[in-house]
Each structure stands twice: as structure tokens, then as C-alpha cells.
């Protein structure tokens, strides 16, 4: 926390005095968020009305355009639309997706590579995977190099 913030006067709202523009903006933001949330909840609670309105409009459109679609077909289409709404659509499998998976898992891949590489290096150091003289014991060869 900066020193300017520490020395700032208490909010005007606390003392019942006139509100600053920043505080008024913040309050309005909160009120706006609450209103939006309530609207969203209201809309979702009355989703049946949305269904009906959509159905009427689609029927009217079909009548105007002369499309021979039936009301039952429109109902099925609306039902399918609302069911598939907000469903997660995974990326199509392919090389690009594979590369993307490798990329997002790069930290784990690096960590595992480091572990395996370190293990291999230790094993080489103790058991002499690259012998200097065939048939010679591993430990003396190693110590000899040191």
C-alpha cells in the first residue's frame, strides 16, 4: 500500500458528506451490476415466455416466407437450441490441437524431462554407461577420471 493511500482522508460517505465522483461511479457500478444480475435471473426464470415469443416469431416468419415448416418442427428446433446452448465445444482433433496440448503441458513435460535426464546422468555416473576400458570395473574408472 502506498503512502498516499495511507494518508488519504476517509471516504466522504462515511461521514455523511458529499460523495466524490469516484465513489459515485463505484456505487453506480455496483447498482448496475445488481440490476444486470437481477435482469439475468428474471430472464432465466421466465424462459418459458422466451420460448413462446421465439416460437411465435418463427411461425410468423415461416408464414411470411411461405416455408411449409410445422409448429411441432419449430418446437423441436427450439428445444434443441436451448439444450445445446452453453455446451462446451472441444477443438477438432488434429496436429494443431496436439501441438496446443503439448504447449499447455510444457511445464510438466520440462519437469519430467529434467527428472529423467537427471536420473540418466546419475546412472551413467555410477555405473559407467560409457566405459573407457572394456572389462574394467565401473567405480575405479569413474574415480580415475575424477
Amino acid at each position: 500500500m502506498s503512502s498516499q493511500q495511507q494518508q488519504a482522508p476517509p471516504p466522504a460517505s462515511a461521514s455523511g458528506q458529499e460523495l466524490s465522483i469516484a465513489e459515485m461511479t463505484r456505487i453506480m457500478d455496483v447498482a448496475s451490476t445488481l440490476r444486470r444480475e437481477r435482469l439475468l435471473a428474471t430472464r432465466e426464470l421466465s424462459v418459458g415466455d422466451t420460448h413462446r415469443m421465439l416460437r411465435e416469431r418463427l411461425l410468423e416468419t415461416a408464414r411470411v416466407t411461405g416455408d411449409p415448416v410445422t409448429a411441432a418442427e419449430i418446437d423441436a428446433a427450439i428445444e434443441h437450441y436451448f439444450q445445446s446452448l452453453h455446451e462446451f465445444q472441444p477443438p477438432a482433433p488434429g496436429f494443431e490441437t496436439f501441438l496446443a496440448r503439448l504447449y499447455v503441458a510444457r511445464n510438466q513435460i520440462l519437469a519430467w524431462s529434467a527428472v529423467l535426464g537427471g536420473g540418466a546422468a546419475l546412472a551413467w555416473a555410477f555405473f559407467g554407461f560409457a566405459p573407457t576400458r572394456p572389462g574394467a570395473p565401473a567405480a575405479p574408472r569413474l574415480w580415475g577420471r575424477w
Binding site: E37, R38, L40, A41, T42, L45, L85, H86, F88, Q89
Partner: peptide, 20 residues
């Protein structure tokens, strides 16, 4: 788009319950 749907699915039931 996926994030919007994800937030919607996560938040909306709670908002609806509060409204009820």
C-alpha cells in the same frame, strides 16, 4: 464464448435462487 457460457452456468443458478 466458452468463458461466457462457463460463467453463465456457474453463476446463473445462484442468481436465480436469490431472485426466488
Amino acid at each position: 464464448k466458452a468463458k461466457q457460457s462457463y460463467d453463465f452456468l456457474r453463476v446463473t443458478p445462484k442468481l436465480m435462487s436469490a431472485e426466488v
